[in-house]
């Protein structure tokens, strides 16, 4: 089935099997391997991307459903060589160890702040609970998000 998407500002058309998830389209067909496949069942958040500005789990969403929509992945956050403030905050605060959950964490964090759900440590923990980190970098992730909020990310 044909599907047309705007991914990180670029118009893309592809012909996909109806079974293809948005995550598999990104990773396997478009070589946008920043979004990660952790569980493939909505349980970890590693596949988090923004669709029309809202964060979703791309592993539980079919590509064909998103025809005509705007997708932002971790690859689309930076402005050329300049990191997105949330990316910079994660680097500055060591918001990761192995880095596997990080693209999902950062996409989720960008949305979390935009939604207005990052006003306290507790609120950040609750509203970032859809992103698991097996390395347990949680304290630094919270610090990074707080800092990004303070710097008006």
């Amino acid at each position: 089935m044909p599907v047309r998407l705007k991914i990180n500002g670029k118009d893309i058309s592809a012909d996909v099997d109806t079974r293809t998830t948005l995550l598999d389209l990104l990773r396997e067909r478009l070589q946008l391997t920043g979004s990660k496949k952790g569980c493939d069942h909505g349980q970890c958040g590693a596949c988090t991307v923004l669709v029309n500005g809202r964060r979703i789990n791309s592993c539980l969403s079919l590509a064909v459903v998103h025809d005509g929509e705007e997708i932002t992945t971790i690859e689309g956050l930076a402005n050329g060589e300049q990191l997105h403030p949330m990316q910079a905050a994660f680097v500055e605060h060591d918001g990761f160890q192995c880095g596997y959950c990080t693209p999902g964490q950062i996409c989720s964090a960008v949305a979390c702040v935009k939604e207005g759900h990052a006003k306290s440590d507790d609120e950040i923990r609750e509203w970032m609970s859809g992103n698991l980190c097996r390395c347990g970098a949680y304290p630094n992730i919270v610090d990074a998000i707080k800092d990004a909020v303070a710097k008006n990310a």
Partner: peptide, 9 residues
């Protein structure tokens, strides 16, 4: 219920 990402869907 669920997570913010899941609730958006």
């Amino acid at each position: 219920g669920a997570s913010p990402q899941l609730r958006n869907l």
